[in-house]
Simulated assay, not measured.
Amino acid sequence: MKALSISLLLGASLALSATAASADQLADIKSRGTLVCGTLGTAEPFSFPEPQTREIQGYDVDFCKALAKSMGVKMELKLIAVAARVPELQQGRVDVVIANLGYTAERAEQIAFSNQYFASETKVAARKESGMTQVKELAGKRVSAVKGSSSEAGTRRAIPTATTVTFQDPSSAFLAMQQGKVDGFALSELSLIKFKAQSEATVPLVTLEPALFLEPWGVGMRKDEAALIKQVNTTLDAMEKSGEALQLFNKWMGASTPYKMQRGFKIEPIKG
């Protein structure tokens, strides 16, 4: 009986130790020496292949690098689909998600969000020949969006009488609009700028007003990981204070880029 009691106590102790270890994800990352960062790899200028080397680069990737550096570990990128961002995180296949992940109340029930590191207006583009200028003109029509994205949810919410047609990636959703299979294409304003420029010579586009919504983006993490959440937010706040965050914005979206945008947000807690 005594031996059995000792065995049970030992088993309980080991179980508690394992639970404690798995609960401190930041310690696990540092012990492993690698931060696994989930990103899209298909969303210029956030994460996309460099034409010559095919190495994934972009605004989101640079934030992955900054977080890994702050932890003193190497960065490992894992390319994930839009619809898989939350599941990949919940199932422990990635440590953090930096992948155009817009804050929604529904997502916040499933995962933790960092302070915002980007804020995006989501808009709808249409073929210029359609004559449309307003979002309300899409009532009863077809609009494409990326499956599982906040653009999909925002389109359904803002234009409830439209039929939202989903695709696995932005390029496919854009092509459907170019080919006339849908009447509009919903995506972040920044990405639409690039698509409009690519399409100008063949199928001129117009951006419909007003924007569907303004969306803060955050780093996605598993809930109840207080140490990791604090580490990520501390790093983001330091990047804002030092000017590094602004430098990254200008590098990928500023005056010397095709987007020629000015930063109209700062890193701060998401007001959800």
Rank of each mutant, 00 (worst) to 15 (best):
L212F: 03
F113R: 11
E225N: 15
K65P: 08
A84L: 07
S150R: 00
P45I: 00
S188T: 11
I193D: 12
S31C: 09
V206G: 03
Q179F: 04
Q57A: 13
S150A: 05
R157D: 11
Q247E: 12
L248P: 02
A176M: 05
F185Q: 01
S13A: 08
K65M: 11
L4F: 09
K260T: 14
E44H: 07
G11K: 00
Q168D: 12
A108Y: 12
T202R: 15
R127D: 02
T34R: 02
L26N: 01
F213K: 09
R107G: 10
L26T: 00
S191R: 06
G11N: 01
L40P: 01
A153R: 06
A108Q: 11
Q52A: 14
G218R: 01
Q57I: 13
E109P: 00
Q25N: 08
F249I: 08
K196G: 14
A238Y: 02
L77M: 13
I270Y: 05
W252H: 02
V94R: 02
V73H: 09
A139I: 09
T202A: 14
E240N: 04
T166S: 10
K196M: 15
A21V: 14
K78V: 11
E44W: 02
A119I: 10
Q231R: 10
S151K: 00
G184F: 03
V97S: 10
F185Y: 15
V219R: 02
G41V: 05
K196D: 13
D237A: 14
V97L: 08
L40D: 02
S7Y: 03
E137W: 11
F63P: 04
E88C: 11
A43S: 08
G72Q: 12
T257D: 01
A66N: 07
A112F: 08
V135T: 15
T257S: 11
V97Y: 08
K2Q: 13
M75F: 06
V96P: 06
M75E: 15
A158W: 00
Q198G: 08
S13D: 00
K223G: 04
G72H: 12
G58H: 11
E244A: 14
L214Y: 04
A126R: 03
A158N: 08
A162M: 13
T104H: 07
F46K: 00
L40E: 00
Q178D: 06
R54A: 13
